[in-house]
């Protein structure tokens, strides 16, 4: 983790407004909480704002603070606390590379190198064509398919350097690569196919009732 500050003013957009759908959703979200506790909706609103804009902007923070009658600093605290909020602009495709121990041991360095080569040498920086940016993240819970990356709401797993490069190239070309393991593995089965539980599992027998008086 590193210092999390708002993006510099020249990167910030002039304003922020929820789309009509999101605004209607926000009203419902805020109404979930009792009177006087509207601030509880702050994470949900920031997250929806980030889904809409791609990142959390300065006008967004102030706009959400006003919606929830919160001091600006309180929303800033939340936005800087959680690393899931992006405080700098991201590309259309945000590549989140897991580098926690299992992924790292399984070769996440090669995945990162591919990102550095084909997106930008530095994380949190939008590529020249504006389509990509990448960042390191902590464990995303797919260790069994390590190494992996997250793009949008999809996981791309069992990566190597070349596979990552191809993934990025496919996205760049506007293709829609299939999420999941990229090495022909079926979900988290062993590589090369299942090795256990190959036969049909018989229906479990009814457990026999213990005879009365058997237990002493």
């Amino acid at each position: 983790m590193s210092l999390r500050r708002l993006a510099p003013p020249d990167m910030q957009p002039a304003g922020f407004a929820f789309s009509a759908d999101n605004a209607a959703w926000a009203v419902k979200e805020i109404a979930k909480y009792p009177q006087g506790r509207q601030a509880s909706a702050v994470i949900a609103l920031l997250w929806r704002g980030q889904e809409q804009e791609g990142w959390v902007t300065h006008p967004m923070i102030e706009s959400i603070a006003q919606m929830l009658s919160m001091p600006f600093i309180r929303v800033l605290e939340v936005a800087t606390f959680y690393t899931m909020f992006n405080l700098v602009p991201v590309g259309t495709y945000l590549v989140q590379v897991c580098t926690t121990t299992p992924c790292w041991l399984a070769g996440s360095d090669a995945v990162m190198d591919a990102c550095k080569k084909h997106i930008h040498p530095h994380p949190h920086t939008v590529s020249a064509d504006g389509k990509f940016s990448w960042m390191e993240v902590e464990c995303l819970g797919a260790c069994v398919n390590a190494p992996m990356l997250q793009m949008g709401k999809d996981f791309y797993e069992d990566l190597t350097g070349p596979i990552t490069e191809k993934l990025i190239a496919d996205f760049r070309a506007g293709k829609d690569p299939k999420p999941g393991p990229q090495n022909k593995r079926h979900t988290s089965e062993p590589e090369g196919g299942a090795t256990t539980l190959l036969e049909d599992v018989a229906k479990p027998k009814k457990p026999s009732k213990p005879k009365p008086g058997a237990a002493t």
Partner: peptide, 19 residues
């Protein structure tokens, strides 16, 4: 006057006024 706050967390927690 809720101008002060703690941004970031852990080792990077900082006390600051809003912007």
């Amino acid at each position: 006057v809720p101008d002060l706050g703690a941004t970031g967390r852990g080792e990077d927690m900082e006390i600051t006024t809003y912007l």
